[in-house]
Computed example of a mutant assay.
Amino acid sequence: MTGKQLHHRAEGPATAPPLLLGPSLGTSTALWDKVAPELSITHRVVRWDLPGHGSSPADLIAPGATVADLASLVLSLADSLGIDRFSYAGVSLGGAVGLQLAAHHPERIERLAVICSSAHFNGSKPWEERAALVRAEGLGELAANADSRWFTQGFTVPELVEDHRTADPDAYAACCDALAAFDIRDRLPRISAPTLLIAGREDPATPPAHLRDIADAVPGAALTEIPGASHLAPAEQPEAVLTALRGHFDGGAKRGMEVRRQVLGDAHVDRAQARQSPFTARFQDFISRYAWGEIWTDDTLSRRERSLITLTALVAHGHYDELAMHVRAARRNGLTPEEIGAVLLQTAVYCGVPAANSAFAVAQGVLAEEDGVA
């Protein structure tokens, strides 16, 4: 096993906040096909396969395995990718891995989402029986009725059912051993990462009550129930899952958008959003998350002071279109026309008279429009 790692698929900018996505028993990274690409706009998304599932080596796990063993494999994968602290979302067994990580390795987990999972999986006996069946007869019978366990009536994802059928029986059985032994209820109050629970309202395997119990035990946790979803909610109701995950993981972008609107005004931000395309979406998110969600929200400087600095920088670099926008922002941040004029006069000394001349022309037009200052 030396040197072997869980198979993974990475998407999104290498510099974005890392987000690891864990699968359910019997599935692969394909479980996240309808969700991960959208999450990768704002995050460095890393999906991983369970041992013996998808493309992960089967001998990464052995009989008598525990969820802690799987969590160690995930940490080893993160280490190999140079990822120290990360957010995490997981489904079913993948969700149990997330709970294990958050409870026992809190220094590694930024934010946590647990989907269609549980702090215990109805005792050991059903999983011991399933493990024995798979070791004796393989996965054919279980794969044949996967739809009824995973989805609402009439819905299926053939690729996921095929993943179930082709998983390694011994590795699958070892994962069943891990589920049989898992019970983390006594550790839930120690979880400190902001936690979101997502339940499929029609999930027979881990019904909403299981997620509600976790939400009640984890300090500050939130619970979302998704109608029309059974056990594999990211595959059956991807838009609803995506909306919930975005709200949970994109706190910086959300706060940044609020500040961006406060400083630049709704009309400007609405125009920018209307012009957004798939080509520019990541750049727009970068602006909201980093410039507005981290820099402009830092209270070391006031917004007035940030406007003074921004006006000077824009004049220095000749960004006059942006200057017009930030003259308006400066007025919202409390600068008077006289103060704006004083800033531009200062730029004449340090940035050059021609630059200041152009800046005064831009600012005069904006102030005449905004304040009636000629």
Rank of each mutant, 00 (worst) to 15 (best):
T2N: 14
L6Y: 02
L6T: 00
R9D: 11
R9E: 15
R9C: 09
G12Q: 09
G12L: 11
P13Y: 01
T15S: 15
A36Y: 01
S40C: 04
S40Y: 00
V45R: 00
D49G: 09
P51N: 06
S56F: 02
P57W: 04
I61C: 12
D69Y: 02
L73E: 07
A78R: 08
D79Q: 11
I83C: 03
D84Y: 09
F86T: 07
S117V: 04
A119S: 15
F121N: 13
W127G: 04
W127A: 04
E129P: 00
R130A: 11
R135T: 09
A136Y: 03
T152K: 06
T152H: 03
D163G: 04
D163N: 11
H164L: 12
H164R: 10
R165E: 01
D170A: 14
C175Q: 09
A180Y: 05
R187P: 02
R187N: 08
L197T: 05
G200K: 06
P204C: 02
P207R: 07
P208E: 08
A217L: 03
A222V: 15
P227R: 14
G228E: 11
G228W: 08
A233L: 03
A233Q: 02
E236C: 01
T243V: 13
D250F: 00
D266T: 15
A267W: 07
H268E: 02
Q273Y: 09
Q276M: 15
Q276V: 12
S277A: 09
A281R: 15
S288R: 15
S288C: 13
T297C: 05
D299V: 11
D299I: 08
R304Y: 01
E305R: 12
T310L: 12
A313S: 15
L314E: 13
A316L: 14
H319A: 15
M325R: 13
H326I: 04
V327L: 06
A330W: 12
R331H: 14
P337K: 07
G341Y: 10
V343P: 02
C351M: 07
C351G: 06
A355V: 04
A356D: 00
A359H: 03
A361W: 02
V362A: 10
V366M: 08
A374E: 07
